Computed example of a mutant assay.
Amino acid sequence: MNKLNGKTVLITGGSSGIGLATAKLFSAEGARLAITGRDPERLAAAKEQLGGDTLTIASEAGCLNDIETLLSQVKQHFETLDVLFLNAGVAEPTPLEMATEEQFDHIMRVNFKGVFFTIQKALPMLNPNASIIVTTSITNRSGTPNFSIYAASKAALRSLVQSLALTLIGRGIRVNAINPGPIDTEGFNRLPLPGEVFQAIKDDIEARSPIKRFGAPDEVAKVALFLASDDSAYVVGEEIVVDGGMTLVCLP
């Protein structure tokens, strides 16, 4: 317990799923928290679960104006940051023949552009020995026919983590990634697919998984805690896979 005692943490996409599970764990470990989300109702529900001391901010992850406003509020509240967990993202099916420019721009803006500029604009607030954690996805190393834009955005993040890890380690700032496989989150369950198609995809994933189930957000949160804490002081530029073995059977 208390692995994050006294540390200040910002979690984007912290109102549900992996982000909320991580916020709960970090809070239990002594962190002072700020979380973001797009839905005011989910943010309010998250604040109720996390406690009144949690700073909750409605923010669009891919909008530079929102990023600047977010970090201004965090600076006013905390002054500095010890942990920046960039977890906000969007996933939607984009079959090649049906994908639109609007979809392409939206996914890349939220999943890649938003992460890059949040890190850039948060730099003046980051304490020495700060930890930056980025959520990628196992799709960034495998062919994903109907989610090609999403997969490409996550592959861009994998590359970004490696480059920024070298850029920032001289300042004492570590950059690493968590690479989740199939996780049973609200976001996954809200994929815009017909019910029978969604169930078929879920059944197929469970059948192909070596562990024969989806992961839980709490299981990813524990890896985030490792990367946020001093336990990972010698881990730089890595991408830790949390997927129940899926990449062992799904990658070429």
Rank of each mutant, 00 (worst) to 15 (best):
R158P: 00
S159M: 13
S153V: 04
V161G: 00
S153Q: 05
I173A: 04
L157E: 01
L160R: 02
G170Q: 13
A165W: 07
R158M: 05
L164S: 07
Y150Q: 02
P145H: 10
L164A: 06
Y150L: 07
I169A: 08
Q162R: 10
F147Y: 15
G170N: 12
S159R: 12
I149V: 14
A152C: 08
I173N: 04
A177N: 01
T167A: 13
G172D: 06
V161W: 02
A156V: 07
S142P: 00
Y150G: 00
R174I: 05
K154A: 07
S142H: 03
T167Q: 15
P145F: 08
F147W: 15
F147I: 14
F147G: 05
T167N: 14
G172Q: 07
A156R: 06
S142R: 12
I173W: 06
S159Q: 10
L160P: 01
I149R: 07
T167G: 02
I169R: 11
V161K: 01
I169C: 08
V161T: 06
L160N: 00
I173Q: 04
A152M: 13
S142V: 15
S153I: 10
P145W: 09
A151L: 14
F147R: 10
P145L: 09
T144M: 14
A177C: 02
A177W: 01
R174A: 06
N146V: 11
Q162T: 04
L168V: 11
A165M: 07
F147K: 09
I149G: 04
L157P: 01
L157F: 03
L160I: 00
A151V: 10
A151I: 13
G143D: 13
I169T: 12
R171Q: 15
S159W: 00
A155K: 08
I149D: 05
G143V: 14
N176V: 05
G170H: 12
A155G: 14
L157S: 00
F147C: 10
L166K: 14
G172L: 09
P145R: 06
V161M: 00
A152N: 06
A177M: 02
L164K: 08
S163Q: 11
G170V: 12
L166R: 13
G172T: 09
T144A: 12
I169F: 04
N176D: 10
R171L: 15
I149C: 08
S159K: 09
A156D: 02
I149H: 05
S148C: 14
